[in-house]
Amino acid sequence: MTNEREEIGPLLSAYGDGELSPVEQRRIEALLAADPELAQRLDDQLALSSALVKSLDAEVDEIDFSGFADEVMAKLPPPTVSLASRIRTFFENAFEFRKLQVALGAATVAAVAVVTVPYLRGDVGEGDRIAALVMNGQGQEADRTASAAPPALDPSASVLSVETAGDYETMLFKTSAGTTIIYVREVQ
């Protein structure tokens, strides 16, 4: 019996904490029922454990933990992010949030190329290569264009201002040959 008490000594504490398997638990319970001295020993351990827990709880309640987290955080070094990581994050965000803008920009470039390349290559007929802007008589462009052709970059002649009198309106042309034409006509 004595040897068996010494053997289960370590298990008795675990039994008190409810940490044993069902088989071991049943074995300890059988021994406790058969051995009053062992049962008394378990009661003593439980009483000691309970007193220890109450004592520690009392000490913890007396400690002021207010501001504890702030003090801990204040002692931590500031977070450091590597330059490469920041650059990677920047571009990831840029691509993530600017996908639409990038797509629109690409579409615009493509549209401009489609419109201008034929003119640069000379694929457009003479009559089509003339651009016209209607002036309202005060040198201001009205919203009418004879074709989508941009005015040729012709430094040989530049129209700085145009004004018409009376019932005239002005159409400003520039041919593919670079000739600037100021055409006036009476408003019907």
């Binding site: 430094p155 040989s156 002649a157 530049s158 129209v159 700085l160 201002s161 145009v162 004004e163 018409t164 009198a165 009376g166 005239y168 002005t170 000739t179 600037t180 034409i181 100021i182 055409y183 006036v184 006509r185 009476e186």
Partner: peptide
Amino acid sequence: ARLKLSVPGVLDTTVSLKRDGSVLVGGPA
């Protein structure tokens, strides 16, 4: 050269021409 071209009662325009540069004024009836 900066030239002011005026057809009285019809048109006033100012143009800048380089040598051999041309501007064509058309339309006066």
